[in-house]
Design a binder for these strands. Structure first.
Lengths: 296, 296
DNA sequence: CCGTGCTCATCTATTTTCGTATAGTGAATA
DNA sequence: TATTCACTATACGAAAATAGATGAGCACGG
């Protein structure tokens, strides 16, 4: 190993890995395809091994290249975050803030809050990542995250907003048509909207709904937005945040005394960003606004 | 923002931030000072603001540059880790593995183990980071970490080796000279070696040594290697792992029944590295060898 | 069956970047 | 006060990377 390769090779490598071909990576990076080819060639020579198998339909990564994928993604995220931070005056409330939140929070709660924040700080721009990945902050994919699990990381500034209350809800039309269940025991006869798998909600729900099996759900989806849309469409009985349901006159609470549980709501920021005025401002503003989402 | 700046600017920026001057950064990077100056200039133009105040004694970072420091360090660590991984054949047990461990473990336990591993895999090279920072793995500063606290991170492969037993020890010469304490109550009359501050051990020790105050320690150091050296030099009574003390005939256990506590020993690796043969191999080999360090 | 659209590879002219050499400036030292 | 030393800034020729154009191979669809 004589000298370290140019970091631009890393950027090109990441793009090729993501796009799947030299040409596509070139388009994404705004450079030409021969340059991309040279970069990959140089990187392969630097590490002493092939990274891609060339074919007429693109490049397929070797095991060696796949092993680099997490690093490549980390570099892309960190460099983007760095450029974003660098491009903003640290004293001024301007520049871009990336916020990560669950899909439901991002679609149902955040838009009016963000609109209000932007009205107050017109030079601010917001990027909203609708994702449930808990490690967004560490991966530098977001500046601020809104989470519904207790944070375990160090080096984070976390503030607990309160508890988001959830309950069973259905559209009034559905209940008029099918009747209102009087106990949990009657639920299996109804059209139930439930979670599929891979959802952190799964365990919480099965704990709160004794006797209801995976197969009892008539519609199963891990997409919470779809879940909510199904309730609103009168498909059946599903789980919904009480504060969201309260906004919609057509939604009626089902068995509010028998089924209820809460999730913690946190707003979290990386420690390093405390010195950034724009991140601090958005963090504090959201922390206030989000109080409308919780019940306690 | 027209086009993203070259990632090489980031590398140069990180070097200037670390070294404190254009010339020093140039030496560290193996390029020339005018190139470094050009890079910084280009970066400043790209972000639209000054990053350093030039002076005859070097460059001092502005607030804006300081805000970028964590990102810069992350980029440096991730790119180094990526290059390290890329330079090794994933099938072969070769290349470099970075191991992070506490100073005591790194000095007292690991050397013979690593020597044995290297005898078995001659193409392997080892980098050993003696540090107690728990986030080494997330920062990509190390591939494998040996920790004495329970891991809280997700996305880690962690294996609990057992419990490291600690006790009070002193050199035989010291005890011959000053006598052997028969109870904890007699300890304040002795020369005690203790921890200073900022040590995770502090709380554990004060819990196990009731009645002993910070001021009762005659020698206070947070450096565990110094602590051990002081015991061996006959300075007084200090805390030592029983397995380390057992190797040294001159060290005698003090109040073994009255004072004893254990710390968990973990070996931890990032999930992504499971597919790397060399990391997996070293991980497993260390997991076996480290069993000699624990008592249970 | 042949065109169309995609890909990667190769060659050359041009632009960009880099290194060398040198000048200039302030602070510490004798 | 003169000198040395480390630093930054500037100018210019050399080297390197880039863009552009072109050719060839493979898959898909009419």
């Amino acid at each position: 190993m004589s000298t370290e390769p140019s970091w631009d090779l890393y950027r090109t490598f990441a793009a090729v890995l993501r796009e799947g071909s030299l040409s596509a990576a070139a388009r994404a990076l705004g450079i030409t395809q021969p340059s991309v080819a040279r970069h990959i060639e140089a990187f392969e020579q630097a590490v002493g091994g092939k990274l891609f198998l060339r074919s007429q339909r693109g490049l397929s990564p070797t095991d060696r290249a796949l092993a680099l994928q997490p690093y490549a993604e980390e570099l892309v995220a960190a460099s983007a975050a760095m450029l974003r931070t660098a491009s903003a005056d640290p004293e001024d409330i301007a520049g871009t803030v990336r916020i990560s939140a669950s899909e439901i929070v991002a679609t149902e709660h955040l838009p009016p809050m963000l609109a209000a924040i932007r009205r107050q700080y017109p030079k601010l721009s917001i990027e909203l990542v609708a994702s449930d990945a808990v490690d967004d902050l560490l991966q530098r994919r977001a500046d601020i995250a809104i989470r519904m699990v207790d944070p375990v990381q160090q080096a984070l500034v976390a503030r607990r907003i309160g508890t988001v209350q959830l309950g069973l809800y259905a559209h009034r039309d559905y209940l008029d048509r099918r009747g209102r269940p009087q106990s949990i025991a009657e639920l299996p006869g109804h059209d139930l909207i439930g979670v599929d798998r891979n959802s952190s909600l799964s365990r919480a729900i099965s704990g709160a709904l004794p006797g209801i099996e995976h197969g009892d759900f008539t519609l199963r989806t891990d997409n919470t937005v779809v879940h909510l849309a199904a309730i609103r469409a009168g498909f059946g009985i599903g789980i919904c945040q009480t504060r969201i349901a309260a906004r919609d006159m057509a939604l009626v609470s089902v068995l509010p005394d028998a089924f209820a549980f809460g999730l913690p709501l946190w707003i979290v920021m990386h420690e390093d960003l405390r010195s950034s005025a724009r991140c601090r401002t958005v963090f504090n503003a959201l922390a206030v606004d989000l109080r409308d989402v919780v019940n306690t």
